[in-house]
Write a protein that binds this DNA or RNA. Sequence first.
DNA 1: CCTACCGATCGGTAGG
DNA 2: CCTACCGATCGGTAGG
Lengths: 213, 213
Amino acid sequence: MTEQKTWPAPPTSGAGRAQRPQQRSGRRRAEILQAAMAVFGERGYANGSLTEIAERVGMTHAGVLHHFGTKEQLLIALLEYRDEEDVVDLEGHHAPRGAALLDHLVATAAKNMERPGIVQAYSVLVGEAVTDQHPAREFFTDRFAGLRAMIAEALAEATDRKVGDGDISAAASAVIGVMDGLQLQWLLNPHSTDMSSALSLTIDALVARLRRS
Amino acid sequence: MTEQKTWPAPPTSGAGRAQRPQQRSGRRRAEILQAAMAVFGERGYANGSLTEIAERVGMTHAGVLHHFGTKEQLLIALLEYRDEEDVVDLEGHHAPRGAALLDHLVATAAKNMERPGIVQAYSVLVGEAVTDQHPAREFFTDRFAGLRAMIAEALAEATDRKVGDGDISAAASAVIGVMDGLQLQWLLNPHSTDMSSALSLTIDALVARLRRS
DNA sequence: CCTACCGATCGGTAGG
DNA sequence: CCTACCGATCGGTAGG
């Protein structure tokens, strides 16, 4: 977004223009992000090309770079965009806190079974992110840290335990792990795995187990 | 392995030769597979180059292709090689059947915390495998199907249920999911996650839950 | 936003 | 196993 070049004859103002250029540019950026999500999901980030993304929105790859600067910045923008989309329907535009979060996770798993493209993009990118010096590495590291804290809080509330409890930490990691791991199996064979049932069963089992011992 | 060209002056026989060429070639292949595991783990399959693999074993990329034909065949050979290595220490060279399998899985998780390279290669490749037409897609699809069946059998034995039980299937998927998902979190931040503890807790919780209800 | 271009890299092949 | 090469593709830039 910084040091972006302008066009030769910037199409600002102009009486006959139907929309303000910032609006059109913003919509164009969103179109590119949608295409990037599809292409990176289908090919991976390393193997997905700017040219293919550009073709899907009807421009050249130089046009994509005009909007996002570099391929890497496009990826970062895509990851943030995806996170926003996930909570855009929720009240307050953020996931619920406390024990209600656990139900929200199960509901998200059910919703995800209706949108394989988004699931595929997420799974591909998080797998790539563990490669050395990958541009999305920090994003996912921070994302996991935040999620673990939120889920630990939810589990503590549901089981009357402390957040610092070792089993609570382990269970929080496990809940995230189940979500991510189920997606891989489901993507490779949708008939093999009911993500929301398996997640729900696991959360129930962990909560019951932590309530007792 | 089919239609492989030979060298101009095949170094077969020869009295002064210390080893038979098949032996040396077999060892050379293993060296290449080790290097490929490291490079694909660090860069991914799409982004990992034959040249980098070749350099690590002291040859050119054409030499690697001499041994494996194509990059894709190298990947397939690597995946099979990795699976073999996993069970080479076990009696009978296969994972235990029945309820003992569950303990084996926890032990493997503990062992994996000592070998990040192998874990990284696995996680990167399974993530890439969900992209369209990826050469490892079938391998992982079959691998998951086999694992689910074995784990379902183990869980059924441990809980006195039938293998066909819906909750048994869901739990089997969940157990695999936890293993794979924990690896991602552990790779991104080893301090964040104790893979064997979290896996053990989850399996215990699922078994207890399925024993009761 | 495009055209035109650059340097770099890649997998694979020919031929020995 | 290597040298030498090919065609293809890629991300990014200049300049308008």
